[in-house]
Design a protein around this nucleic acid. Structure first.
Lengths: 128, 128
DNA sequence: CTGTCATATTGATGTCTGTCGATATGTTGC
DNA sequence: GCAACATATCGACAGACATCAATATGACAG
């Protein structure tokens, strides 16, 4: 990913967070999306729209402690260590996962706010 | 899009519909996703993860009659007619929109079941 | 049947993305 | 400091994707 692309992506991710505060949610079904809103929502959906990243999120979310070590992902997902690291980086940049370094190991947990915002963006206005 | 890719995509879209019947929903947060479930969910999320397609869906969903004519999309979205047609085709293939030919015009409406399934897949198990 | 209009398909192109091997960075224990 | 280990970054590559111009398809009017 180029530097320009990274800046582009993080810009929209940040805008998405701002726009998803309770009183100003981006809502797919509430009205025609502006170009900006569509870019924000598409940006975070693109990060989710990958089988490996979805499995990473699901593994973290369903772990007993709510967190998982990077070392636990390589084997079940059948991808190289750089590839897993790349996907984890995408998820962290998008705000879907949070990374915490603990000694040699990197631990990841879900950012509930971020995923809830995406969830609500795809639902009806009066939904949860 | 190649024929192989189309077959690939439609396979996963169909599997997603099957998997999203009420008693067997794909749930991102309910447990580790299998490779198949992850492919299904990623497939339909990929279709949604484009600004133009999100705006198409939002325009259709928020129209007073619940449907919109293809001719209404080109101007506000600032894309060529073939590009709009391409995106509409993707949304129809994925089951998110339904197409109805009425004379010279093509009308599109939302498939509520499809979008609801994606919405629920990203939510908590006890959510709506 | 023919022209006109709306939409779909084709073909081409530049860009983006997932992947991996190689290597760098950073942490721990000795 | 040094060796061992976990993770991140770099560089490269193949495949996928969004886009448009040109063209084809299909429907209606006269």
């Amino acid at each position: 990913m180029s530097v320009d692309m990274l800046l582009y992506a993080s810009t929209y991710v940040n805008m998405f967070f701002v726009a998803c505060r309770p009183n100003d949610p981006v809502q797919l079904l509430a009205g025609p999306l502006s170009e900006g809103d569509a870019n924000e929502l598409a940006g975070i959906l693109k990060v989710l729209a990958d089988p490996v990243r979805l499995r990473l999120v699901s593994i973290v979310a369903s772990s007993a402690t709510g967190e998982a070590c990077a070392c636990d992902f390589t084997a079940p997902l059948d991808r190289s260590q750089p590839t897993i690291s790349h996907h984890l980086g995408q998820l962290v940049t998008a705000g879907i996962l949070e990374r915490e370094q603990r000694g040699k190991w990197a631990w990841f947990r879900l950012n509930d706010q971020s995923l809830d915002a995406v969830h609500r963006a795809l639902g009806r206005p009066n939904c949860c």
